Amino acid sequence: MKHYHYIFAGSGLAALLTAYRMATSGRFADKQILLIDPDTKTVNDRTWCFWEEGAGEWDSILYRSWNTALFANDDFRTELDFEDYRYKMVRGADFYAFIKAALDAHPNITMLQEMVLSFKDLGTDVLVKTKNTEYTCDKLFNSIYCPTLPALQKKYPVLQQHFIGWHIKTEQPVFNPAVPVFMDFSIPQKGNTRFMYVLPFSETEAIVEYTLFSKDLLPQQEYEAAIQEYIANLGVTHYEILDKEKGSIPMTSYKFWEVNSPNIMHIGSAGGWTKASTGYTFKNANRFSQQLAGFLVSDKSFTEFYKPNRFWFYDLLLLDILAKHNEKGSAIFSAMFRKGKAAPVFKFLDEETSLWGDLKVIWSCPKGLFIKALLGRLF
């Protein structure tokens, strides 16, 4: 039975970022590291978008970036003022290729195409069982999401950011390649938080995505019918579907880190690294992976890695509202972006504001909803 210092169960975004941080830090060259995942991580299976102020470390692999975006609902449409921020897009295939090239330069890191069946903290080490063999390690990072954990409790609501997107090419020039559609709530809400999201690459090519923040997924045909209707309303009569993508990202303030053991840490969506209020993952995973690489040098127990902050509580209040009044999402996000000033909101969502900055964003939202949610949590 082969032993490793570190094993990653699953090699998605969080695992690849953390392994990359460990490799490039130079502090783990004497450690044997194994990443196990049944997928080859070679195809363009997803895209990640994030806002960032100025230049960033991932700019070399950006597929597109924009310095403004459209926000819309039934009452208004506005181009957002990003100030020094840009909205950046990374394709999965480009990210995988970059990370794998970096990891290949480190002979102590191995990537194995295999399925993890189970793992257990034995106290002195961790036993990992795959479909074909068993391994042991000093420490395990698990990024395989287990929906049962949050589903079995009632203290914290569990929603999903679920979507289907079509990458289309049209005959007519209908898109503005300089202005993506960040959130378009002008579509029928049907008792939910529903919006269209458009990433334009040219006047005739874009990803058009139908997204919901709600508890339950829809039949596939409902997402696709909404996309077809939206495209038709743009005046498009003929188009080609180049690719499709779909996903469901957990949105919850459930304390995943409380199920960490001294030698097993849950990371990524499985560890609560997804921003609970928005479903955005890339920026959070980037930040946590940096923190984790530094934490590992301290040799502390994994149970000491994460502690919730005030932003965790803000997210919880929003999810409490959306769990009980899912139709209120449009009103809440519209209030945040109504003045068109996106930069303070981005800073708040990145958890970089002062308490005064927090209050300015929160106070722009429907106050009664948040006061009621706060009182519900306090009492």
Rank of each mutant, 00 (worst) to 15 (best):
W273P: 14
M196L: 13
T170P: 10
L316M: 05
A9T: 10
L35C: 12
F370K: 02
F119K: 11
E57V: 01
G294H: 13
K372F: 05
S277F: 03
A97M: 15
L140A: 10
E79F: 08
D121H: 10
I332P: 00
A93I: 06
S269N: 13
A97C: 15
K246S: 15
G235Q: 11
Y210A: 04
F379L: 14
N142F: 00
P173W: 03
I362M: 06
D74F: 11
E258G: 03
G54Q: 07
Y314K: 04
Y63D: 08
L355Y: 04
F163I: 07
H238L: 01
L13V: 14
P344F: 06
F346H: 03
F76Q: 04
Q291Y: 09
M1L: 13
E79N: 04
G123Y: 04
Q113V: 15
E352A: 09
R338I: 08
F95Y: 04
A55E: 11
D59S: 05
A101Q: 15
M265N: 00
Y20K: 11
D350L: 09
L149V: 14
K190W: 09
E53I: 01
L17V: 02
Q290R: 11
V128K: 05
F185G: 01
D350Q: 11
L296T: 01
N44V: 13
K339F: 01
I168Q: 10
M115L: 12
V181C: 07
L375M: 11
L62M: 07
R64P: 00
R27K: 10
C49M: 14
S186Y: 03
L359D: 01
N192D: 15
L13H: 09
F82R: 10
K300E: 02
W273Q: 08
M89W: 02
S214D: 12
A232M: 06
M1S: 14
L292P: 07
T136F: 07
M251Y: 13
Q228Y: 07
F346A: 06
S202K: 12
L117W: 12
H3S: 04
Q160C: 14
T47G: 14
A23K: 06
A69G: 13
L212Y: 12
L35F: 10
F71L: 02
W166A: 12
P38L: 13
K88Y: 03
W58G: 06
G357P: 00
K131H: 14
G235C: 09
D315Q: 13
M183L: 14
A23P: 02
L296P: 03
T281S: 11
V158W: 00
Y20W: 13
L318T: 02
L199E: 07
